[in-house]
Design a protein around this nucleic acid. Sequence first.
RNA 1: GAGGGUGUAGCUCAGGCGGUAGAGCAACGGACUUUUAAUCCGUAGGUCGCGGGUUCGAGUCCCGCCACCCUCACCA
Length: 481
Amino acid sequence: MRAMKDQIRYRLADGQELALPPLEGPQRVDYRQWKSQQGPGEEVGPKVRVAGRIVLQRPTGKLIFLNIRDWTGDIQIFVGQRQVGHHNWQIAECLDLGDIIGVDGRLGRTNTGELTVFAEELHFLCKTLEPPPEKYHGLTDPELRQRLRYLDLLYTEGVLETFLKRTRIVQAIRRVLDEQGYIEVEGPTLHTIAGGAAARPFITHHNALDIDLYLRIALELHLKRLLVGGIEKVYELGRVYRNEGISPRHNPEFTMLEVYQAYGDYHTMMDLAEQIVLGSLRAIQDDYCVQWGETVIDFTPPFARRTYDELFQEHTGITPSDSKAVADFASRIGLHPQGKHPDVIKSEIFEEVVEPKLIGPVFVIDYPAALCPLTKRKRDNPQIAERFELFVQGMEIANAYTELNDPDLQEELFRTQLEGLPEEESMARMDHDFLRALRNGMPPAGGLGIGVDRLVMLLTGSRSIRDVILFPLLRPEAGAK
RNA sequence: GAGGGUGUAGCUCAGGCGGUAGAGCAACGGACUUUUAAUCCGUAGGUCGCGGGUUCGAGUCCCGCCACCCUCACCA
């Protein structure tokens, strides 16, 4: 019915209301339960009302089979010319792939046993004017999948599922923390000094105050101010921004969790990190194993806890305290140890040789102190920092310290950190405001940071961070308005 | 920023030694009252990423540029 189809387009263009008032359907029907109770050939099911987007269409003369999709899945619609009458049949003949319709009918089974809504009334709810992706292959071009994420969600298998899982994981993280009495806060995202990490910030400008501001690169320094202020168990789960390269593991904006607990230490945080990971996993599946490419990650607790030096020795065969042997090893694998602090050489080897082998999950604990400026040293060994990182598949998922709360030492460490920076990066200025807070006394505390996007990647088996960020940063399209 | 790969119809993809553009799906017209990526007959659809060059002739060869993907670097 060409004429009616054109009319629909015309009316849409005219901005007129086509959709029906909100559908107040009959009682909801649990398809799965009903399905399990019926056998093939069953024709008379409950009356149902469904709505969704047409993803497949099989017209066979005076009969049209449609598959419509909503976010719970697909269901087949049977439309018979004789069964639905003239008006509905006219609507049915105007339908295109991608249109959104509502259907009143009875749930039943076709001769082949397919669960089907046998239409009695069709409601035209929305026209789609763009052609949908190929019905079998869907969208595969990675650029289109990101630029047209709405189509990716609709037509690429598993995409919607992954993002729904992401939401459940984030909910689970909050649940674990809330149940243990941690308080969620919202710190500023515009900072006068981009502190708490070493990364290039995005710069913006406030007109009324006429000052440059930086989008935050970490949550840390404001949460610590709250520790000073007596908020003893505190966290923030939010977006941070780093003006760095883009890769399968890096997006310029990403989601961080940082947790601080007064009178806690890195052991407290290790237990908490394990609970957060397990709580997240439980929110999306029942067992502890996650498929990751060709391999399977086993999250069965408790996670291994190994010291940095232990792992170093195990994977290099070198005694970590033998700095000459360490330097020799570094040269042998193509690193350049000349003039570097022994701990730095060790860390370069560790990143190169050990980290890729940390299939995990494994807590790496007790890092060399020189690598950890914001970390308290072990009481009985000032060479060792009370820090752990949680590794899975060679990826760093969590990072935690027993936090440094000595303002003088902190200032000194800031100073040495700033010395090494080239001029253009010395926008990282001494944070006197933060030091003043520390001088007012910050209780000893454990602190934990988790890269939420990477945790979601691991738990959902996603190989790229873009697969867990709805709208990753892309260069604007040429010629786009 | 460096190296490698990709870019052809709305989508998914073919295009051998350089010889004037192909399929499937989608669209449009027709047949079909139990289909399952429905099937069958027909029609229409292209700045071969963009710009130069070589050549009688370029989707194909050369140079430059653009976008995306991968690896590396930056990202404590």
